[in-house]
């Protein structure tokens, strides 16, 4: 049986932990709102970009001079995996689940005899993957200490991907990240970036919307500018989803931690009161039996 003092110390320490976790939950909740708003604000651009790409891409994909970013290198030998995780922990299984998914993907691809390169976005994923796949890591990017993710950050990553593509250092590029479904649900998803999956144009009537557009200066030039921008948008969307998911996961994790701390405090307080009562009873017995002995 721990002493009364030890129990008191324990209770106080758990109480301050609870204060921290509940504050972290509040912070995560407000950050989540901001992240969601940012993701919401980015949506119109992505939607319209998709519409334009549908009009442009369908015709270009078939031609032999189609840009690499749209059709890839034609080979399927070297895979570049972009693993998007958070920079900070304390958000439940958020980082671990991306890490696990990346690991099993790497193993699967290598079992098929393919080469894998990894670009780790976020500190946690980098640390996780470095343990096993240090030699396959192409580079890492972190946004630690940044208030919010700017579009320019996504552009930076997209440029890096394009540079690697032009240097011929990979054939297929996909990104593994946590898709934000709801505050309590984030789904680890893998999305292909290169070759670019074309939006469906099936809805267009025969003859196609695509055919009716005029282009200035010309289709190829526009496509050459549109595709890198589209890549950046895809990356941006991924980063925002992951950021929102991170805050959602942290909120849930901290909510659980606060509740656990509450349970623990309850249990410790019960123990404390029992011990106190036992002490009093013992003292009374001592006094009474002392008085009786006289």
């Amino acid at each position: 049986m721990p002493s009364l003092k030890a129990l008191r110390v324990r209770i106080n320490s758990v109480k301050s932990t609870q204060k921290i976790t509940s504050a972290m939950k509040m912070v995560a909740a407000s950050k989540l709102r901001r992240a969601q708003a940012q993701a919401e604000a980015a949506r119109p651009y992505a939607e319209r970009m998709e519409r334009m790409l549908a009009a442009l891409g369908a015709s270009a994909a078939g031609s032999p001079t189609a840009p690499r970013i749209l059709v890839g290198t034609g080979a399927d030998k070297v895979h570049l995996l972009i693993v998007v995780t958070a920079d900070h922990g304390l958000c439940g299984a958020f980082n671990a689940s991306v890490g696990r998914a990346a690991r099993s993907r790497v193993r699967e691809l290598e079992a098929q005899g393919k080469t894998v390169r990894i670009l780790a976005v976020g500190r946690k994923g980098r640390d996780f993957l470095r343990r096993e796949f240090a030699d396959r890591i192409e580079g890492d990017i972190t946004f630690a200490g940044r208030k919010r993710i700017e579009f320019a950050d996504a552009q930076g990553i997209a440029e890096r991907i394009s540079a690697l593509l032009n240097a011929g250092s990979f054939d297929v590029c996909s990104v593994i990240y946590n898709r934000f479904v709801s505050v309590i649900a984030q789904v680890t998803t893998e999305t292909r970036l290169i070759p670019a999956p074309l939006p469906e144009t099936a809805a267009a009537p025969a003859g196609g919307v695509a055919a009716s557009y005029e282009f200035e200066p010309d289709e190829e030039t526009i496509l050459a500018r549109l595709l890198p921008q589209n890549l950046a948008i895809q990356v941006y969307r991924t980063l925002l989803e992951s950021a929102a998911g991170e805050q959602g996961a942290r909120m849930t994790a901290m909510d659980n931690a606060t509740r656990n701390a509450g349970d623990m405090i309850k249990r410790l307080t019960l123990n404390y009161n029992r011990a106190r009562q036992a002490n009093i009873t013992r003292e009374l017995i001592e006094i009474i039996s002392g008085a009786e002995a006289l």
């Binding site: 940012q38 119109p44 651009y45 579009f151 996504a154 950046a232």
Partner: peptide
């Protein structure tokens, strides 16, 4: 007319005419 940047929707309203700086001259 709709003007969107990657970070947000800037403007969305009907106008009589919009002059936009196309690559080969104002349009």
């Amino acid at each position: 007319l709709e003007i969107v940047s990657p970070e947000r929707l800037l403007l969305s309203r009907p106008v009589d005419m919009a002059v936009i700086p196309a690559s080969e001259g104002e349009m």
